[in-house]
């Protein structure tokens, strides 16, 4: 059982979580419950959100916003990365722009989006895309550039069309980079969406967090936060499973486990 790396990983993560939960529970004995509510109260609120459709709908709304934003940024990022990759001259124009975008805080984009756009959904979509676009672009560009010159020359010796070259060489080359980009950006997107909903939405986890703050309900705030963490963990796990399947060709050293 211990030789199974997945079990070992799960065991270690569980131990870490239990230590945190125990510390919180101890704190709840010594502090007022509006600051440190007991673990069972937080759990009860968490479960209640999951089994109560109107509340679960809010979680799913946030999840849909994250997916929509990430998909938009991913598609745009792929396009920009491939354009830069194919034409290095364009890079000197686009890269400074992306670096500049990367330096703008998410909260500034929230304010800008509120001033620029009327529709709530489009505002959030815009914020999600603009904040995750640079990371997607740079990661996909890096993956594209790591393409082996040997494999490129070998493939070109068969004289493929651009479409076939893309399918047989470029896509498999950038897949590992794409998966890493999704894993990294998922966490970022979850944080940004909360900020965007907190300020500019009338639904979703961010909006619910704002309500809990107004009600001074710590158990509620934590329960809504846990929903988002659970969502990120589940999606991360799905990505890891997809990654394991897609990259199954990679040799694994016995030392690695």
């Amino acid at each position: 059982m211990w030789s199974n790396p997945q079990f070992k990983q799960f065991y270690q993560a569980t131990i870490g979580t239990l230590v945190l939960v125990a510390a919180w529970q101890i704190a709840s004995f010594f502090f007022p419950h509006y600051l440190f509510p007991p673990v069972q109260a937080i759990l009860a609120r968490t479960v209640s959100i999951l089994i109560n459709w109107p509340e679960l709908k809010q979680v799913l709304e946030t999840a849909a916003r994250i997916f929509a934003g990430l998909t938009g940024a991913f598609l745009l990022g792929c396009l920009v990365a491939l354009v830069i990759g194919r034409s290095p001259k364009i890079e000197s124009y686009i890269t400074p722009l992306l670096v500049f975008l990367q330096g703008i805080p998410a909260l500034s984009w929230v304010i800008i989006a509120i001033i620029w756009f009327h529709g709530t959904e489009f505002r959030i979509f815009f914020i999600m895309v603009i904040t995750t676009l640079p990371a997607f672009t740079f990661q996909i560009l890096d993956a594209y550039r790591s393409m082996s010159k040997d494999l490129f020359e070998m493939t070109m010796s068969f004289r493929p069309s651009a479409r076939i070259l893309f399918r047989v060489l470029i896509v498999p080359t950038i897949v590992p980079g794409i998966l890493t980009a999704w894993k990294v950006n998922l966490g970022n997107a979850a944080r940004v969406v909360v900020v965007a909903e907190l300020v500019g939405a009338t639904g979703g986890v961010g909006y619910e967090l704002l309500r809990q703050q107004q009600l001074f309900d710590m158990a509620g705030a934590l329960a809504w936060t846990i929903q988002l963490v659970l969502f990120v963990l589940v999606v991360q796990q799905v990505i890891v499973m997809v990654e394991r399947w897609l990259l199954r060709y990679r040799p694994v050293s016995e030392r690695a486990s």
Partner: peptide
């Protein structure tokens, strides 16, 4: 080529099929 230049993500069969696919 001097080195085999096989695509690591393709099986032996898929590597041989590459040119035919192209």
């Amino acid at each position: 080529f001097q080195n085999d230049r096989l695509m690591p993500w393709r099986t032996a069969l898929d590597n041989v099929m590459l040119g035919l696919q192209i």
